[in-house]
Design a protein around this nucleic acid. Structure first.
Length: 99
DNA sequence: AAAGTGACGGTCT
DNA sequence: AAGACCGCCACTT
């Protein structure tokens, strides 16, 4: 467990329901700007039963980055919080925490 | 050891 | 508005 991951998990856990953050924003918030890709890498290793709100992380264009089955899982999770996702994977009714 | 690979992002066209 | 381009960095081949 690196310091980056620890900070990342703490910040991610603090994202309120109904709000989103970008990969780059989360990286910067965790003290590592320009590490957006690393954030995705870390999140991809989370256990499927994690309590962390991984689904509240979208890319800089406000779109879901996951593909296929995973895309559907995130979309469903977001819709359960009242966030709409259009045909292009873009989130509509949301308040972003930080980009 | 060099090259490829992403749950990415800012700029330029 | 949408792509193309390039920078980025840990990991895997």
């Amino acid at each position: 467990m690196t310091e980056f991951e620890l900070s990342l998990f703490n910040n991610l856990a603090s994202i309120p329901k109904g709000r989103l953050i970008s990969y780059g924003g989360l990286a910067k918030l965790s003290g590592y700007p320009n590490h957006a890709r690393h954030v995705g890498k870390v999140l991809s290793k989370l256990p499927k039963d994690t309590k962390l709100p991984w689904f509240r992380v979208v890319n800089g264009q406000g779109k879901i980055s996951l593909q296929g089955e995973a895309y559907q899982r995130q979309k469903t999770k977001l819709e359960m919080e009242g966030i709409e996702v259009n045909e292009q994977g873009k989130v509509i009714n949301f308040k972003h925490l930080k980009y």
